[in-house]
């Protein structure tokens, strides 16, 4: 659990998700502290991505409760959660094919947009001013995630690592308080992963609470304040990177031992 001084940004209590007889997530409770980086690790099929999807609202819970900054969100539809300060990325690169990086960022920042009606259609002065401000904002964020100067680049022309960074930028464009990263380093080479570490720490420095799923232990150990370990949908360990790394149950289920 988060230390008593800071109120959690995100709390899961007794969350379960059953697909037929499969208990993908089983009575899971943990919380993400404000301005904390929490790692969620575990073997394939242990329920990590399902947990992200439950928090994001892709499908309903079988049981349990989820709170975002003290507000119950489990009954709120997926599209209504980003306006409350929640953003996520996907395990596989999920972008808008045919868009430029900038256009991707602008849709990512959809919830920040106020002019959505007649004003937007007829390009009213307010709508144009807002669009210009959002383009500036998106351009700044592109530079922040390491894609400066890529605004006009079609998504297809970005490398897979750049697409991953764009996915993070697009999520940040909604100005979230809580960011869920689902395997952000997938397909990245060592140098790219090191840059990603710095980016995740920089995101935290901007006051965002981050939950990150990753298989690259070096990255997890470096950026995370705390780690929750899942196996078969259940939490088997929780604690600081050092505590988790030396936990026999974690070594047995996931990390493995060097013989």
């Amino acid at each position: 659990m988060a230390d008593g001084a800071t109120s959690p940004a995100l709390t899961l209590r007794g969350v379960s998700k059953h697909f037929g007889g499969v208990r993908a997530v089983d009575d899971l409770s943990f919380s993400l502290g404000t301005n904390e980086i929490l790692g969620l690790i575990g073997p394939n099929g242990s329920g990590k991505s399902t947990t992200v999807n439950l928090i994001a609202g892709v499908f309903p819970l079988t049981a349990g409760a989820i709170q975002l900054g003290g507000q119950a969100i489990e009954a709120i539809p997926e599209y209504a959660r980003p306006p409350l300060g929640l953003a996520r990325t996907f395990q596989t690169a999920s972008l808008f094919p045919g868009f430029t990086a900038l256009e991707q960022m602008l849709v990512g920042g959809h919830v920040q947009m106020r002019e959505r009606g007649i004003g937007a259609l007829f390009a009213s002065r307010a709508a144009r001013a807002e669009e210009a401000a959002r383009i500036q904002d998106a351009t700044d964020l592109l530079a922040f995630v390491g894609l400066g100067g890529c605004g006009a680049t079609p998504i297809e022309n970005l490398s897979s690592a750049q697409q991953r960074l764009l996915m993070i930028g697009s999520a940040l464009a909604s100005r979230p308080r809580v960011l869920l990263l689902d395997e952000p380093a997938a397909g990245m080479v060592a140098a790219e992963r090191r840059a990603l570490c710095d980016l995740i720490l920089a995101i935290k420095a901007r006051g965002v609470s981050v939950m990150v799923i990753e298989h690259h232990m070096a990255l997890i150990m470096k950026v995370c304040d705390r780690i929750v370990v899942l196996n078969f949908g259940q939490k088997i360990a929780e604690g600081t990177p050092d505590a988790v790394r030396n936990d026999p149950k974690v070594i047995d289920a996931y990390l493995g031992v060097s013989h």
Partner: peptide
């Protein structure tokens, strides 16, 4: 799916 995740109703 991504549009929905971006908060588009």
């Amino acid at each position: 799916n991504l549009a929905s995740a971006c908060g588009v109703a």
